[in-house]
Design a protein around this nucleic acid. Structure first.
Lengths: 259, 259
DNA sequence: CCCCAAAGTCCATAACATGGACAACCCCAC
DNA sequence: GTGGGGTTGTCCATGTTATGGACTTTGGGG
């Protein structure tokens, strides 16, 4: 989890890890939770969290005792969003997808060996899954967004991940045997869109399509999630086409914005 | 600039300072610039920036050599925005203001003794000022947003700031004599909205109105900027009413969202 | 009222970040 | 081509600074 890649900067790695852990959930995380997830000692975590809060990057919610992202995080996001106007670019597609399919729609971004959920738009269908929301991370290859992205990576990059799959997938390894993942990747590459048949949580299905950056690399993904009866074979074609169409539009919008 | 508020966490303060400096501008900042602004030595800044980049919080733009906010910053912002949905809450008002007045409209947030510009919406009027954009910070009391916020702080808090005004205002102190600021604050408190008659940059005028959080504290501000002829006396009343009306709406939306 | 878990604090220790000094660039001027 | 000013990148001995074991405090449940 925590590893110093640049020497002379252990704390930076730790701080970044803590921020990631806290930002996994808009509701934040309790101290013990951060301690457990980070593998650091309690005094250290406490001290770092307190100082991050003093800097405004975090806040300490008095009622729940949870540590949550602070205003500085909001600011940084705003500025970063001026360079990558994700909201402008992806939101319209999410609205259309959610509205017309009834399911919840998501926009995720690749970040190293993970995908992270950036935007969420709830659909009108009354049964909704809350597995995925802003900040949730999955290893590449897990869940529909991660599958869609990984399927369009260069073959050697995919092999690198698959070679150490169990390590990479972590807690998802048991429900995601490498052979199954290989199958799914091949199918995704063929169809253009991915299908997650409830592998992360039984009954919670999803479909995804990759969005490509200006270098043609799969850097983002659109996805839909809902319950199994809404993702049966007869509907997959409709949902898949829809996702691909919107993903294509987003790719276009990205490229015109980034030039 | 850099001061360790919590002990045993010097680096956290430094890292936060660097992030703030880089995030002052969506285009990022060069190494020397960060060195100058932070007051740290070059090796230290370089090492910290490099490790922040390794963590994805920053990126090193290969073409310009500038350090810019990275994807992790975007992610954190997304998650923080799920708690403070600033975009949803303020954007419609900004659009209306920009569209109907012609000027550029801004949404800023108070952060300690500063205001930071969060959102910008350009108006159709062809002469536009680029003094203010996402990430730009002003001391409280300087510029229309900071004036509007400060004017509605408790009297003793205002006095605390005014007591050490020159120190607080920094580079703005020469153009913002404390007597003038006092006058402006009083007028703002009376009118409800603030007017900045080109104090930050000659010819660049602005008007602002505060937005109040659930505890009734002025935590955000709406503002408009443009050239002097567009902010003459006869138009100030119209612009002021408009700002107050939209600020009121945002306050309402905030309160219903936060409960 | 007691107990246990979580949060918060202290301080001697040594691990870690630090920054002076040096090297490698890059661009412009002459 | 060559020289100079400005900027970036790297190394490593030094001591400043983060660390975490141990202790204290808080608070919720039975």
């Amino acid at each position: 989890m925590v590893q110093a890649t640049v020497q002379g900067a252990q704390v930076v790695g730790r701080v970044a890890a803590l921020l990631r852990i806290v930002s996994r959930n808009p509701k934040g995380a309790a101290l013990v939770e951060v301690v457990r997830e980070s593998g650091l000692t309690r005094p250290t975590v406490h001290r770092l969290l307190t100082s991050l809060a003093a800097e405004g990057l975090l806040e300490h919610d008095g009622t729940t005792g949870n540590w949550v992202l602070g205003t500085e995080a909001l600011l940084m996001g705003s500025v970063a969003a001026a360079r990558f106007p994700v909201e402008d670019i992806a939101r319209p597609s999410l609205r259309r997808l959610a509205e017309e399919t009834g399911e919840s729609a998501f926009f995720s971004v690749r970040r190293g060996g993970e995908t992270v959920c950036l935007l969420r738009e709830e659909g009108p269908f009354p049964i909704r899954s809350f597995v995925l929301h802003e900040g949730v991370r999955f290893p590449l290859g897990v869940a529909s967004a991660g599958n869609a992205i990984m399927a369009f990576l260069p073959a050697e990059e995919q092999e690198q991940i698959l070679a150490r799959w169990d390590d990479h997938a972590g807690t998802f390894a048991p429900t995601h045997p490498v052979a199954l993942v290989r199958d799914n990747l091949a199918r995704t590459h063929h169809d253009g869109y991915s299908v997650n048949p409830g592998l992360v949580l039984e009954g919670s299905w999803g479909m995804g399509a990759a969005v490509f950056d200006t270098q043609g690399k799969p850097a983002w993904a659109l996805s839909l999630t809902g319950i199994e009866p809404r993702f049966r074979k007869d509907r997959q074609d409709f949902l898949g086409r829809f996702l691909l169409e919107e993903a294509h539009q987003i790719t276009g919008r990205l490229h015109s914005r980034m030039t």
